[in-house]
Design a protein around this nucleic acid. Structure first.
Lengths: 197, 197
DNA sequence: ACACCACTGGAACGAACGCTCTATCCGATA
DNA sequence: TATCGGATAGAGCGTTCGTTCCAGTGGTGT
C-alpha cells in the first residue's frame, strides 16, 4: 500500500528510483542518463527498475517529470501562501531559487526543462507530462492573482509571464553561473504585477 | 581561406558540419546527437569531422553553439534596427519567434539552451560559449535601450529580463505547443520597457 | 614529372547503451 | 509448514556510441 508517506529513513525502492531518475535527468538530460546509472544511484538493481517500470526508460522519465512537477508545485504554493503580497512573494521566490541554484553549484535548475527539451519531437508522453507541469504551476499563480482581486484576463496573462520569466531567468542564471538574472527577474515581475492590481 | 562568405550552392564541408551539428543538437541535445548522425546529415564522412574538429564531439559542440549564437544575434539585431520603438521591436520579435517555432512544428527552439543544459556541470568549454552568447544578446538590447535615452542601470537590468523572458517564453511555447506564452511575453516586455523610458 | 598535403572514405576498437531473461529471495497467506 | 507471487539480482543480448587509424584522392607548387 504505502508508497512513501512517512518520513522514513529509507524510502520505497520505487520512490528511490523515481527520485534518482528525476535528479539525474534534471542534471544530465534524458539521453545523458543511463538506466544503470539510475539503478546504482537509487541503490536498486536493473531487475527492480524494469519491475516497477515495464515501459522502460520512457515510462521512468514520465514518472521523474511528475515527481519534479510536484516538487516545484509545493515550493511555489508555499511561497505564495507565506507572503500576502503576491508581487513580493514572487520576488522572494526568485531569490530563493537563486540561492538554491548557487548551493548546487549551478547544476540543479528546473527539474523538468532539461528532460523535456532533449526529447522534444520524439516522446509524446514526456512532452505531455511537462506541459501539464507548466500548466499546474501557472494555475497556482493565476488563482492567487485572482484571489487578490485581479481581473481574469490579467491574471491569466501574468501567470504565463511569471512562469516563463522565472523559467528563463533560472536558465540564464545557470548558464551565467550568477544570481543576477533571477534577482532582476524577481524585481521586474513584482513591478509588472503591481502595475496590474 | 574561404569559410563560406559567398551564397554558394553547396557550402564548405566544415560549414556543413557545423550547421548540421547546430541544428541536431538544438533539437536533440548533446548526448542525443551522434557524431555519425551529424556526418550523415552534413553529407560528410567521419574522417572529415575529425579532420576539422580533432577535439572531437566537445569541440564540435562549441562550434555549433557559436554558430547558433551568431544566428540569433543577427535576428535580434535586425529586429532592433527595423523598428525605432524598442518596446514594439521586442514584441514583434516575440511574435516572429512564435511563428518560427510553429513552422518547425515546435522542435526548433533556442539554438543553444538544449545543448547547454544537457552538459551543465561537465563541459566547461560549452558552458563558456553559451554564457558568451547570452551576454552578447543582452549587450545588443542594453545598447539599444541606452541609445534611446534610458539610464545605464535600467538598461542593464531590462536587457537581462528581456533575454531571460524571451528564453523562458520560447521554452514554454515549445512545451505547450502554443504561441500564447511568446505572445503574452512580448506584450508584457513592451509594457515593462515603456515603463522605464 | 614529381612531391606534397589537405581532405575524404570507411573499417575496426573497446565501452556503454536499453532491454530481456532466468534464478533466487522473502514475507504473507492457507 | 507449504505455497505463491511480488521483489531483487545480475549475466548477457544486440546495437550504437565516440574515437582511432590508415589507405586513398585530387589539386597545387616546383
Amino acid at each position: 500500500m504505502n508508497t512513501e508517506t512517512k518520513t522514513a529513513a529509507t524510502p520505497d525502492t520505487r520512490t528511490r528510483i523515481v527520485r534518482a531518475a528525476s535528479l539525474l535527468m534534471q542534471r544530465q538530460g534524458y539521453d545523458g542518463t543511463g538506466i544503470k546509472q539510475i539503478a546504482q544511484e537509487a541503490q536498486a538493481t536493473l531487475g527492480s527498475v524494469y519491475h516497477f517500470f515495464p515501459g522502460g526508460k520512457q515510462e521512468l522519465a514520465v514518472a521523474a517529470i511528475h515527481h519534479g512537477d510536484q516538487e516545484f508545485y509545493d515550493v511555489l504554493r508555499e511561497a505564495l501562501e507565506r507572503e500576502e503580497d503576491t508581487a513580493r512573494a514572487i520576488a522572494d521566490l526568485c531569490d530563493e531559487l537563486a540561492d538554491g541554484l548557487h548551493a548546487s553549484q549551478w547544476v540543479d535548475g528546473c527539474p523538468i526543462t532539461t528532460t523535456s527539451l532533449g526529447t522534444a519531437g520524439r516522446a509524446p508522453d514526456i512532452q505531455t507530462a511537462a506541459a501539464q507541469a507548466f500548466a499546474r504551476w501557472r494555475g497556482l499563480v493565476r488563482d492567487r492573482l485572482r484571489a487578490s482581486g485581479m481581473s481574469e484576463g490579467d491574471a491569466h496573462d501574468l501567470a504565463h509571464t511569471v512562469i516563463s520569466t522565472m523559467e528563463g531567468a533560472e536558465l540564464a542564471a545557470q548558464v551565467a553561473q550568477s544570481k543576477e538574472p533571477l534577482r532582476i527577474a524577481g524585481k521586474h515581475l513584482a513591478r509588472l504585477i503591481a502595475l496590474h492590481q
